[in-house]
């Protein structure tokens, strides 16, 4: 419970920092802290595989692309300045709505009958085979019970990849008209030689 409170505090603080930071790179660093804390959360819930995948996929792949784009596009750009407050006092009704929703959910959970304890309760060290959340269990569940959602997700990602290629290929000359690598090499070498004469 103590660990939960500390982690929760870090999680919320880093989330707030992510959206309130004036420089995009600070947002990325805050989001990195956020993802790492979330991974630790998963470990405390004995979901070892999920924790590791969280770091590999979100911190290691997606967020790195954010850094890549920011480094490419925003170097030398001034940090965001505080613009005119276009939604005055919107925080008051929004806060009330969110707070009442939270209270409602927590009340509903507290009022609901306690769920039956899982048959094979997570005993033993986190991640041991056979224990809830281990790599072996996760893989087995993914490829047997949940195979359809898994494959559908893969298909959706495939569609996205093909879509990106189709959308951007307009500006790329088609493979047939593109210069061969050897030709590029030759032209580069000639250019270097010409550079010496200039």
């Amino acid at each position: 419970m103590i660990a939960f409170s500390i982690l929760g505090a870090i999680l919320v603080a880093s989330a707030v920092w992510t959206i309130s930071a004036r420089k995009p790179v600070y947002s990325v660093v805050a989001l990195l802290v956020n993802f790492a804390t979330l991974a630790v959360f998963y470990v405390t819930l004995s979901a070892e595989f999920l924790a590791v995948i969280q770091i590999i996929v979100y911190s290691g792949a997606i967020l790195v692309l954010f850094v890549f784009v920011i480094a490419l596009l925003s170097s030398g750009v001034a940090p965001f300045s505080a613009g005119p407050n276009r939604l005055p006092m919107i925080w008051l009704p929004a806060g009330i709505v969110v707070l009442s929703a939270l209270v409602f959910v927590i009340h509903a959970i507290a009022a609901a009958p306690a769920p039956p304890a899982p048959a094979a309760s997570p005993g033993g060290p986190v991640g041991a085979p056979g224990v809830f959340g281990s790599v072996a269990d996760f893989g087995k569940a993914l490829f047997t019970v949940h195979i359809l959602p898994f494959e559908v997700t893969a298909l959706i990602l495939m569609v996205a990849v093909i879509g990106v290629i189709t959308l951007t290929s307009e500006h790329i000359p088609s493979a047939a008209s593109r210069k061969s690598e050897a030709q590029v090499d030759r032209e580069m070498r000639e250019a270097i030689l010409r550079g010496g004469e200039r």
């Binding site: 070892e48 595989f49 590791v52 290691g60 060290p125 281990s134 790599v135």
Partner: peptide
């Protein structure tokens, strides 16, 4: 750690 090699990758 049981997911040792994955953790190293992470």
């Amino acid at each position: 750690v049981n997911a040792g090699i994955l953790l190293i990758l992470a």
